[in-house]
Design a protein around this nucleic acid. Sequence first.
DNA 1: GTCTATAGGAAGATAGAC
DNA 2: GTCTATCTTCCTATAGAC
Lengths: 189, 189
Amino acid sequence: MGRKASIDEADLMARLSAAFREFGFEGATLTVLSRVTGLKRASLYHRFPDGKEQMAREVLQAAGTWLEANVLAPLRDSGSPAERIGRMIGKLDEFYSGGRQACLLNLLSSAHIHEGPFTGLIRQTFEAWISALTMTLVDAGLDEATARARAERGVVLLQGSLVLSRGTGDTRPFREFLKALPQELLGAG
Amino acid sequence: MGRKASIDEADLMARLSAAFREFGFEGATLTVLSRVTGLKRASLYHRFPDGKEQMAREVLQAAGTWLEANVLAPLRDSGSPAERIGRMIGKLDEFYSGGRQACLLNLLSSAHIHEGPFTGLIRQTFEAWISALTMTLVDAGLDEATARARAERGVVLLQGSLVLSRGTGDTRPFREFLKALPQELLGAG
DNA sequence: GTCTATAGGAAGATAGAC
DNA sequence: GTCTATCTTCCTATAGAC
């Protein structure tokens, strides 16, 4: 086996992302990040001159880009609202690995705190998500206020089910959330 | 002003708890814990010989004890289910400072991970909470399965609303969760 | 029961060879 | 673009005076 490691861009970001989602910002030490990527510290600094904070920022931005392309854009796309929500659910299942991986928006919220480096990006991402979902529900015939309340509630249920799944070591809460989501968003209730 | 700090037991635990809830386990360094308590490192080690892990464990246990005494016991108490849930809501508002403080069950979940020192306690606390809430809803006339599903959903909504409140820097999601909780649990929906 | 002082190690980050 | 080696800072933890 050769001495020099190598890793393509996408795989690198995916592995860094997994580490931050598992350990949080402070828990994901350079030793951990080096181990999961197979790159030595200095190699990580070559790619990310501003160090760990840049790694977390780029991972968070990449997650936002993925969310926009795979979840939010399809929500604004063609097809019935029910179809669009169905597509979103498939992507969410993939993104959170069926409830086994946590959400960066939760795990990076405690980093530095009080207007930390990620605060603005986290808030924007939450708002973009709720807005896109709101528009889909308006398309489904709901009035603006109801649509927005349900969109926000969908995001709350997602985050809460991930917290409970991680806390109990059982992905069932997340899986049941996904199953119930169409009814939660579109139901007559 | 004198050189020696002092702090009573309850205040000490409250301040340590606030620090872990704000910064997480790894983020709450001894420097931080020393600052928020006003005690020097060595004084903290006198009280907690096993160090930071013991501090977090005792804080988590104290939170569990507080929850049992102030939230779960009242849920099993006398009064109508609606009254008992109303009392729970008042205590939750107090415990989470109206959405300004996060939940230890979420912030300590990433510590060490994979059967870390808090894993068992976190799972037990979630289960005790859901069980107590389930019993109250059975008392209210719901069948066992519906009661349990709604109890779990109540906990999911709580955790999710706290995550969204923290992520957006706005306590509104938590406040609206509290307001809607009686209907969520007892409503005909 | 608190303090000052410090040990010992792990953290983030950099220099320079290849 | 990756590596080895090193630097500095911060962190956890301990020793011992008061």
